[in-house]
């Protein structure tokens, strides 16, 4: 599904990713762990199409050159990023944002757009599953949401959009124990349908609920080690300092 070959990224002449390679197949869950500033969010942003990086190397998504696709086209094709810091958009109602987003994607795929009633039915169902208070959906997008609520809102969007490749950038940070469980359930239910995930996290805890197929350790813009779930446990014990 996703193949990253020797990806290097610079910004303002500062080198952030260095010859980064990774392959994610359909249905796989990859966890990426790494110290602050190691380039995890940069990787997420490059995959989802944020502009402003000097890039070299190659990224293929379903055999298409990802760099040739606009940000929104990547979304249309099923790439979703749950932001580390979800944006606030004053004045824009959360429900309307969700509906506009879903319909833009459906339209691009040649699917029928949902009308207000169909959409509300869907959003109600998903909100209920994620225990997301419906009342919040009538508020301005992320404005005045708590840190955890913003993260849950990202997962709500993910479950409504049903993406092929979801990148979760520290979605677990700031979630309470119950919310963590709920988010994990959300991921697991999507996972069943052969969707893939890149889960960026600092804590092994999330991986208790979402069993990854692979764990990668990212340091200084490079994967220094890959392994199975046991790698996360080892990392948690040793810390990055003594790793290697």
């Amino acid at each position: 599904m996703l193949r990253i070959n020797n990806l290097s990224a610079r910004i303002d002449n500062k080198s952030i990713l260095k010859n980064f390679s990774l392959q994610v197949n359909a249905g796989e869950v990859h966890a990426i762990m790494g110290p602050n500033g190691s380039g995890k969010s940069t990787l997420s942003n490059i995959l989802s199409g944020k502009k402003g990086y000097d890039l070299s190397g190659e990224v293929l998504f379903e055999n298409n050159n990802l760099f040739e696709l606009e940000t929104e086209e990547r979304a249309h094709r099923g790439i979703f990023l749950a932001f580390q810091y979800p944006l606030e958009i004053p004045g824009v109602n959360t429900n309307i944002f969700l509906k506009t987003s879903l319909n833009a994607i459906r339209k691009a795929r040649g699917e029928k757009e949902l009308d207000a009633i169909e959409f509300l039915r869907l959003v109600k169902e998903k909100a209920k599953e994620l225990k997301f208070e419906e009342e919040k959906l009538n508020r301005q997008l992320n404005v005045g949401f708590s840190g955890g609520e913003k993260k849950k809102n990202e997962i709500l969007q993910m479950s409504i959009l049903n993406p092929k490749l979801s990148i979760l950038d520290e979605t677990d940070s700031g979630l309470d124990i119950d919310a963590l469980r709920i988010v994990a359930d959300g991921v697991n239910s999507l996972r069943k349908k052969n969707n893939s995930f890149i889960i960026i996290t600092h804590y092994q805890r999330l991986l208790d609920y979402i069993k990854p197929d692979f764990v990668h350790v990212l340091m200084n813009g490079k994967i220094i080690q890959s392994g199975g779930p046991e790698l996360a446990l080892e990392l948690e014990k040793k810390g990055y300092e003594n790793f290697n």
Binding site: I89, G91, V92, I96, A104, A108
Partner: peptide, 24 residues
């Protein structure tokens, strides 16, 4: 960043601006 966020959710830049401005 607001535009990028909207684009990541499938809106093109014009739709994104339209949405934000209409909200405003």
């Amino acid at each position: 960043d607001q535009l990028y966020y909207c684009q990541q959710r499938g809106l093109n830049s014009e739709e994104a601006v339209g949405l934000i401005v209409n909200g405003f």
